[in-house]
Amino acid sequence: MTAEQRVHLSKSAPAVYSSLAGLAKQVGAIAAEAGIDDRLKEIVQIHASQLNGCAYCVRVHVEKGIKAGLDADAVTQIATWRDSGVFSDRERAGLELAEAFTFIHEDGIPDDVYDRVGGVLTEAEYVALSWILISINAFNRLTIAGRYPVPPRETAAATPR
């Protein structure tokens, strides 16, 4: 079955999709209030999307990450963040939290992760990042289930050859 043959969930239930998009907007607002910058927000969304295998969301959030100041080195190091020296302590805490939320079915949020992340992030930052991760995991499931085609690169169209 091709993607064209599948039910397009966001088009088939637009009110529900609109609610999910509204959730993402509210999450963005609490993230901004908590001091979560766009770079950190995009790093955790890229990582969760990578872990879920959502090429659509990886593309979208890499584009947004580039606009937020991520460079090619940082983007390529996300998958190997534990061995990389390009991320701040806050970003490393966010990446660890991204893994815990993405694989929440395995152990929940383990106490050691909660304690480590809580030692770096404020409560407001933890709450905001948690909601970002809940939201991106929902979008990942929507696009993976629907086999949404990966959107074209925005930067490719703007880059002369």
Rank of each mutant, 00 (worst) to 15 (best):
G108T: 09
T80A: 12
S88N: 08
G118S: 06
R82G: 04
P110D: 02
D83F: 11
A100N: 07
L70E: 00
T122P: 07
I78G: 01
N140E: 07
T102C: 05
R161V: 08
E96S: 15
I144S: 06
E91A: 13
E96I: 09
I109D: 04
D83R: 14
L133I: 03
A128G: 06
L142S: 12
T80L: 07
L129A: 04
V127A: 08
G94K: 05
A138N: 13
P151K: 10
P110S: 01
V86C: 08
R90N: 10
I78L: 11
V75E: 05
A72E: 14
A128Q: 04
L129W: 04
N140Y: 05
L133N: 04
G119L: 02
E91H: 07
D111S: 11
Q77V: 03
A128F: 05
Y126M: 05
G108Y: 08
A74I: 10
R153S: 15
T76Q: 09
D71A: 04
N140I: 12
V127L: 04
G85C: 06
A138V: 15
I109Q: 00
F139L: 15
Y148M: 14
S84Q: 11
A72F: 02
A145P: 13
V113P: 01
A98K: 07
K67F: 00
V75R: 01
A138G: 15
A138P: 13
A156V: 14
A100P: 01
T102Q: 05
F101S: 06
A100L: 02
D73E: 14
A93C: 11
G119D: 01
A158G: 03
L142Q: 14
L133K: 02
A145K: 14
D112Q: 09
V117A: 00
L70S: 08
D83C: 07
P160W: 02
L142Y: 15
A145V: 15
E154K: 15
R141W: 11
P149D: 13
A74T: 13
I104W: 11
F101R: 09
T155L: 13
E106D: 13
A100I: 01
G108L: 10
P151S: 06
V117L: 00
